[in-house]
């Protein structure tokens, strides 16, 4: 069913991106060294970008790389290097007793649910995108911009306000005035 719905190149692209995503994601949780885990995360993000390109969402693919791989994971690595946590990542005890067993059960339920959904519903349509085709050759920035600044304007502005609040809060926490610190300081 799947083979007849897709052309060979798009199947190849899908398999490649899916492998990148899965291997990277498994690496993030299984690798001991935090820097290696961050590298695996970059691999996953690249896989997602490839998947976006395959869905002809070029702009999202580029933004995925610029924002997530180019800035956020760099900041992760920056913090890992700055604090030097990469040498002592030895966890000797489990904070929650029996968490591995619970995790196994949770994974099994999720995977079974996904397989059941895929078997019973009509998700495999063969169409590249479920919504209408965005790309008209000149990229899909115009459509995306129109959607963000008209239909979803409130959500967009709310998100930006949320981010500004987070930044202001971080600055407030990091920089304390003398009047408050002099009372707290033990000397």
């Amino acid at each position: 069913m799947i083979a007849s719905a897709y052309a060979v190149p798009s199947v190849l692209v899908f398999v490649t991106s899916a492998l990148l995503i899965l291997i990277g994601a498994l690496g993030v949780i299984s690798v001991r060294n935090p820097v290696h885990a961050a590298l695996c995360l970059i691999m996953t993000l690249f896989g997602v970008a490839v998947a976006f390109v395959a869905q002809s969402a070029d702009f999202l693919a580029a933004v995925q790389i610029i924002v997530y791989a180019g800035a956020i994971v760099v900041l992760f690595l920056f913090v890992i290097m700055f604090l030097g946590v990469d040498q002592r990542a030895h966890i000797h005890f489990e904070p929650l007793v029996g968490q591995r067993a619970f995790a196994g059960v949770g994974v099994a339920i999720t995977v079974a649910g996904l397989i059941a959904l895929m078997a019973r519903s009509h998700w495999v349509t063969g169409a590249v995108s479920v919504s209408s085709k965005l790309s008209n050759g000149s990229g899909n920035v115009k459509e995306l911009g129109t959607a963000v600044f008209t239909t979803y304007l409130f959500a967009f502005e709310a998100t930006s306000a949320l981010l500004v609040i987070a930044v202001v809060g971080a600055v407030l926490l990091a920089r304390r005035e003398r009047s408050t610190t002099s009372e707290e300081a033990p000397q």
Binding site: V35, A62, V63, I65, V74, L77
Partner: peptide
């Protein structure tokens, strides 16, 4: 000449940070 060409430039300049960072680390 990809349709989002100039974004690819930004993406690549973002990626090239990793080489320098990881080389040092």
């Amino acid at each position: 000449n990809p349709p989002m060409g100039i974004l690819l430039l930004l993406a690549m300049s973002g990626i090239s940070v990793y080489g320098v960072m990881l080389a040092g680390w």
